[in-house]
Structures are given as structure tokens and as C-alpha cells.
């Protein structure tokens, strides 16, 4: 009986240790997600909507996972510098100009990008802000 109790204690503590030891990337992802959401609410939600649904044909939805994946390396530049080209999203054309957000720091861009690409049905995972910084330096 005593053995059982000791064994189960041991097992529980092992599980607890594993559980508390989430890897650094998961913690970073959660961190980016929550900060990214605040940036999203402040800067993006007006046009793109609370659930990334867009607004008519004025602002495209952010639910096209294929578009977001194929343009993965351009997203940071679009977020910061806006866009003035036709995008085909979910099979529809969007021609309105997207404004620039020069006030966003690289870390803000990284966080909001991670938030968008892991919300609204997207699941692209974590991108570090250093990577985003490099992308932002090479915007066309």
C-alpha cells in the first residue's frame, strides 16, 4: 500500500514537472498572440473585423489560409507599408488601398503577424521578430 502511494506521488510530480516545462517557443507564441491581439484591435480590426471577416469588398478577410501561406514572406511588409495592388482572396478581387502603419515597431509587426497567421482558421505557428526585422529591411 505504501509503495503505491509513493509511486503515485512520484508519477504526479513527474507529470507536473513536464507540464510546467513547456518549451520556450510555446511561451513565446502565447506572448506574441496576446500582444498581437492588442495591436490587431488597435490597428487592424476597424477594417478587417473582429473575426478577420473583412468588410464587403472594401477590406479583404484574413481567413484565406492559402493566400496567407503563399505570401508568408511579404506579410510583414504589407502590415507595415500598406498595399496598393489587387489581391485575390477567397476567389474575390480586392482593389482598395491599404494604409501604411509606420508607427509600428518591428516587434509589433511580428506580434500582430503571428496573431493573424494563428487566428481566423490560420495555423502557421511562431515567427521570431528577428526574422521579421530582416524581412522588413528587405521590403520592396
Amino acid at each position: 500500500m505504501r509503495k503505491y502511494i509513493i509511486n503515485s506521488f512520484f508519477l504526479v510530480s513527474v507529470i507536473a514537472v513536464i507540464y510546467s516545462c513547456q518549451n520556450q517557443e510555446t511561451i513565446d507564441l502565447q506572448n506574441y498572440m496576446s500582444n498581437g491581439k492588442s495591436v490587431y484591435v488597435a490597428k487592424c480590426q476597424n477594417c478587417h473585423g473582429e473575426n478577420g471577416e473583412g468588410l464587403g469588398q472594401l477590406a479583404p478577410p484574413l481567413t484565406d489560409t492559402v493566400f496567407l501561406k503563399t505570401n508568408k514572406n511579404r506579410l510583414a511588409c504589407i502590415i507595415k507599408n500598406g498595399a496598393n495592388e489587387t489581391f485575390v482572396i477567397n476567389g474575390k478581387e480586392y482593389k482598395e488601398k491599404m494604409p501604411a502603419f509606420p508607427e509600428l515597431a518591428d516587434i509589433d509587426v511580428a506580434q500582430v503577424m503571428v496573431y493573424i497567421t494563428n487566428s481566423f482558421g490560420n495555423k502557421q505557428g511562431f515567427v521570431d521578430y528577428k526574422q521579421v526585422s530582416t524581412q522588413l529591411q528587405n521590403c520592396k
Binding site: Q45, N46, C47, G49, L55, G56, L58, A59, P99
Partner: peptide, 13 residues
């Protein structure tokens, strides 16, 4: 307008 109008008209819609 990129600030409040899109939200206003989304709601008014």
C-alpha cells in the same frame, strides 16, 4: 477613413 468609419458601417450594415 480608416479609423472609426469601417466599424460604424460594418455595424450599420
Amino acid at each position: 477613413c480608416t479609423t472609426i468609419c469601417p466599424t460604424m458601417h460594418r455595424n450599420l450594415m
